[in-house]
Computed example of a mutant assay.
Amino acid sequence: MRPALEEVQRLDAYLHETLNEEQRMEVEIRLLWDRDWQWKLAAQKLAYQALRLAGRRQLRRELDGMHTRLFG
Rank of each mutant, 00 (worst) to 15 (best):
M1R: 08
R2E: 06
A4G: 03
A4H: 01
L5A: 03
E6H: 07
E6M: 10
E7M: 08
E7S: 08
E7G: 02
V8L: 10
V8F: 01
V8Y: 01
Q9P: 00
Q9E: 05
R10N: 03
L11R: 04
D12S: 13
D12Y: 05
A13N: 07
Y14H: 05
L15K: 04
L15D: 01
L15M: 10
H16Q: 09
H16M: 06
H16S: 08
H16C: 06
E17Y: 01
E17Q: 14
T18P: 01
T18V: 09
L19H: 02
N20A: 07
N20P: 05
E21Q: 14
E21A: 15
E21Y: 04
E21P: 10
E22A: 15
E22Q: 14
E22N: 13
E22P: 05
E22G: 12
E22I: 13
Q23W: 00
Q23H: 06
Q23K: 13
Q23G: 07
R24I: 01
R24W: 01
R24H: 03
M25L: 14
M25A: 15
E26P: 05
E26Y: 01
V27C: 02
V27N: 02
E28W: 02
E28S: 07
E28T: 09
E28Q: 12
I29T: 14
I29E: 11
I29K: 15
L31M: 04
L31Q: 03
L31N: 03
L31G: 03
L32G: 12
L32M: 11
W33S: 15
W33P: 00
W33D: 10
D34W: 00
D34Y: 01
D34M: 05
R35I: 09
D36S: 12
W37D: 07
Q38K: 12
Q38S: 10
Q38A: 09
W39L: 15
K40W: 00
K40V: 02
K40A: 15
L41K: 04
L41T: 06
L41H: 04
A42R: 12
A42G: 06
K45A: 06
L46G: 09
L46S: 13
Y48T: 03
Q49V: 08
Q49T: 09
Q49D: 07
L51H: 08
L51V: 10
R52H: 03
R52G: 02
A54F: 01
G55M: 07
G55H: 07
G55S: 15
R56E: 01
R56D: 02
R56S: 01
R57M: 06
L59N: 08
L59Q: 14
R60H: 08
R61D: 11
R61F: 05
R61W: 00
E62T: 10
L63D: 06
D64Q: 14
D64V: 10
D64I: 08
D64N: 11
G65H: 08
G65M: 07
G65E: 11
M66L: 15
M66F: 09
M66R: 13
H67S: 13
T68N: 10
T68H: 12
T68I: 06
T68R: 15
R69V: 07
L70Q: 09
